[in-house]
Write a protein that binds this DNA or RNA. Structure first.
Lengths: 214, 214
DNA sequence: GCAAATTAATGATTTATTCAAG
DNA sequence: CTTGAATAAATCATTAATTTGC
C-alpha cells in the first residue's frame, strides 16, 4: 500500500545548469540527510545543537528586534507555537462548523488570536487544513479499528453564529468551490536555520495509477 | 453595529466561556498569555467570524481599466487567461528548470508578465503547480503505455529573467523544503466592515496591491 | 532531579486529485 | 478537451512530551 519510491539517479538527464549559479552560498555540503525511514541504529543525531539563545548569530546586523526578550510566544520564531487560548478558540470554531475559512474569516480569526500570542494568517489556514485532515483520518481509523458502527455520524454541535440564514453548512462536503483570495507575501525570509537547501535526491513515485483516468 | 447573537449550544465544554460581543472594541491590554497550564476563561469577542460570506464573488471590478494589449483578458474577472507571451515566458522558465518558485521569484515573474496582460501571483503559482503535475503525469503515461521516445529536453536557453543571476536550479526533485512566506490578501471586504481598527502592527502584511491588480 | 536521546504531535510544504470555465 | 483554480492526501521537518541513563 502506498507509494514506493525509486531513487533514480539519472543525474545526467536533467543535469543542465539552467541559470548561472553564482553567489548561491546556500549550497552547503550538508550531510546526506538520510530518509526518515532509516532503521539503522546510528545514534548520530545532529539536530541537538540548536541552542535556543546565544546561538551562532548571523553576521548580519541584529535587526531582528521582533522577538521580545520574554519570548513567551515562540522563542525561536521558527514556527508557530499556539497557545492554549488560541487552540481553544480554533477548536471551538472548528466544532462550530468552520472548516475552510476564507480570506476575510482568516483575517478576523488572526486578528483575534493575535491577542493571545503571535500568529499569522497562514497559521490559521494551516491549522484548519491539518486539523480537518487529521480529524478525518482519526475518525476513519476509529471506524475501522473499532466496531463497525457507521451510525452516529457525529455529535454535531451546530452553533449557529447568526449567519443571517445563509446556512453555510460547511459540513464534510469535499471539494467545495471557495474563492479564497490570497497572494504571496514576498518576504523571502532567508534565515539560516530554515530553508535548508537539502540536496534533493530524485525519487520517483510509482503510485497506483488509474485504469483509464479522466 | 450588528448585534451578533451567539447561539452557543455547544456540548457543555464551552458552556462557561464568557463571550463578549464587544463589537468595535478591540483594545485589549495585551493578554498576558500565561503559561500553558493556565486555563482561565478567555474572553473572546467573536466580532464577525462567520461573516456571511459575501455572496457575490465579484470583487468590485469597477475599474475595468485593464485594456489588454492583446485582447486576451478576463473581463469579468473569472479566471486568468494567459496570453501567448506569458505562456511562452513561463514555459521558458519551466524548461530552464524552475519548478516551484518562491515568493520573490513569483513576484518578479508576475511583474514581468504583467506587461503582457493582467496576472496575479497566484496565477504564476498555480501555473507552475499544474504544469509540473501535468508534465509528470503525461510522462508517466507515456512511459507506461509504451516505450515512448523520451522527449529530449532540448537546449535549455538560459532565460535569466532579470533575476539578477538567481541560480536556483530547481530540478525535478519532489518534496523540497522551500520557505515560501505568504499571506492572504484580505481584500474581500464589502460593506459592513465597520470597525476595522487595523492595528497595522500585526503580522499580516497587507502590502499594497500591485499597480496592475484590481 | 536533570539533561540527552527517543518518541509523539503537529506545523508547514509539496503532490495528487477534482471541479469547473472557456 | 484543455487548463486554471482549489482542496485533499502525503510527507517533510520542527517542537513538545516522554523516556532513559547518570
Amino acid at each position: 500500500m502506498g507509494s514506493m519510491k525509486v531513487h533514480q539517479l539519472a543525474r545526467g538527464f536533467w543535469e543542465h545548469e539552467p541559470f548561472l549559479t553564482l553567489g548561491c552560498k546556500r549550497l552547503r555540503p550538508l550531510a546526506p540527510k538520510l530518509a526518515s525511514t532509516d532503521h539503522s541504529a546510528t545514534s548520530f543525531d545532529l539536530k541537538s545543537f540548536i541552542r535556543p539563545d546565544s546561538g551562532p548569530r548571523k553576521l548580519a546586523s541584529s535587526d531582528e528586534k521582533k522577538d521580545s526578550p520574554q519570548g513567551e510566544t515562540h522563542p525561536g520564531g521558527t514556527r508557530w507555537n499556539p497557545t492554549q487560548e488560541q487552540i481553544g478558540i480554533l477548536e471551538m470554531l472548528y466544532r462550530g462548523g468552520m472548516r475552510t475559512p476564507n480570506g476575510q474569516q482568516i483575517e478576523d480569526i488572526t486578528a483575534q488570536l493575535s491577542n493571545y500570542g503571535k500568529i499569522e494568517g497562514k497559521n490559521v489556514f494551516y491549522w484548519f487544513q491539518n486539523h480537518k485532515a487529521r480529524e478525518r483520518q482519526k475518525q476513519k481509523r476509529n471506524s475501522l479499528g473499532l466496531s463497525h458502527s457507521p451510525r452516529t455520524p457525529s455529535p454535531i454541535t451546530i452553533i449557529s453564529l447568526d449567519t443571517r440564514g445563509e446556512a453555510e453548512r460547511e459540513e464534510d462536503s469535499p471539494y467545495k468551490r471557495k474563492c479564497r483570495s490570497w497572494t504571496f507575501e514576498f518576504l523571502e525570509l532567508e534565515d539560516s536555520r530554515s530553508c535548508r537547501d537539502q540536496k534533493g535526491d530524485r525519487t520517483l513515485e510509482l503510485f497506483p495509477l488509474h485504469p483509464e483516468g479522466r
